[in-house]
Design a protein around this nucleic acid. Structure first.
Lengths: 155, 155
DNA sequence: TCCTTCTTTGTCCTTCCCTGACCTTTATGA
DNA sequence: TCATAAAGGTCAGGGAAGGACAAAGAAGGA
């Protein structure tokens, strides 16, 4: 007897696979109605399954006509991407980040501009935070940015 | 099903693109009649979309023969970079950030991937901070990233 | 059993949209 | 001159989304 969360996850993955694009758009309340559960259950599934670590990107909009857009991985993703996500899975020092970005650039997976963008973002984004949080937040940001790059083709 | 506000916005943008000049003149009540909505709905669209932060200028005149003129500012490339920095000089809401990124992309100053990268970075980077700081920190990060992009024109 | 982790729900919050009632400005004509 | 009509402006309020979070329930392992 699988979880409802697993069922919803499977449903969304199925939708993603059948989609022409690599993204689908849903409404939280519709999905909740479909599975006869609380809307926050849908949020839970998104927060625990469709996360950058797994190569997903979720964008939302509130208010009337609000929606949730889920973008998934390209069918075949270079192993290096996966490793990069893996490396960024918990904490990421600034020097490890620089090294990782260098690898991605040398492998031709990101452009020089993208590399600089990643670097500056990872350096600056943590400045207002207490030291102990730096590496963790940096890893979090890195994962999101990696997921973005992984899921978008050239131009 | 998109919002009426989005539909009206798209309609006006379309008009602007087809216009010989860079500006169009409309009447609030006409537009309201066209879309079968309250006139104040039109005002709402103007106030939330066609604002200076997004590159538009709106001039109005009341009374008999009143009108609304919308001008789309199409700055030069250098001017656009400058304006982007200007807009990000102090505080930057997430929705203004998104539109600014859209402008840069439409002007061909950044690629689609770079646009996504900027967007996700600006969204995620502030999550661990208290609300009041979000817009300020976002502006700071945006400036850093803009500076990086400005100074590395080619791949 | 007891503890931990994951799941599920419920409640309240924030954001965004849309309308209606009322206000201000401008042109015009008696 | 000034009353009137014809614009657009302002603002409060209700509704429609999704978000955050705490707490209860379920599953599984030590």
């Amino acid at each position: 007897m699988p979880n409802l969360a697993d069922v919803i996850e499977a449903y969304l993955v199925e939708l993603l696979q059948q989609a022409e694009q690599r993204s689908i758009v849903i409404q939280r309340s519709d999905l909740a109605a479909l599975f006869a559960c609380a809307p926050s259950q849908v949020s839970y599934v998104l927060q625990t399954r469709f996360i950058p670590q797994r190569g997903y990107l979720v964008e939302t909009r509130r208010g009337g006509g609000g929606y949730i857009r889920i973008t998934g991985l390209l069918p075949s993703v270079d192993e290096l991407w996966r490793q990069a996500l893996e490396i960024s899975s918990f904490a990421l020092t600034i020097s490890d980040a620089r090294h990782l970005i260098g690898l991605l650039y040398q492998a031709g997976l990101i452009t020089a501009r993208e590399a600089r963008l990643l670097r500056v973002a990872l350096e600056r984004a943590v400045l207002r935070l207490e030291q102990p949080w730096h590496d963790e937040v940096r890893a979090e940001l890195m994962r999101s940015m990696l997921a973005t790059l992984m899921t978008s083709r050239e131009e």
